[in-house]
């Protein structure tokens, strides 16, 4: 029973990521797209944790750790690009 509740939470989070994809496509300026990409990264981390609970797979947690580190580096690089350095 509880697993289906977690699956529903995962579905809601996935729909959130899809809506954020709309902002990523339709954002008027480049920083809007950067913010949308950062939000998609955080949503995907939450989605990975939920799917790890649903499917009982521990390896998704390790993948989420690496994904969090890489998304932080990518967002900082994009912020530097918006500022005009790179």
């Amino acid at each position: 029973m509880t697993d289906s509740i977690f699956a529903w939470a995962a579905i809601i989070t996935g729909l959130c990521a899809l809506l954020m994809m709309g902002r990523l496509v339709a954002g008027p300026t480049i920083p809007d797209r950067v913010v949308a990409l950062d939000s998609i990264n955080t949503l995907v981390i939450a989605l990975m944790i939920m799917l790890a609970v649903v499917y009982d797979s521990v390896v998704m947690v390790d993948v989420a750790i690496v994904y969090a580190a890489l998304s932080f580096v990518g967002t900082m690089f994009l912020a530097r690009h918006v500022e005009g350095g790179v």
């Binding site: 920083p31 950067v34 913010v35 950062d38 932080f72 967002t75 900082m76 994009l78 500022e83």
Partner: peptide, 9 residues
Amino acid sequence: IASHAISRA
């Protein structure tokens, strides 16, 4: 940190 960097940029 990332959001602060974006807003400052």
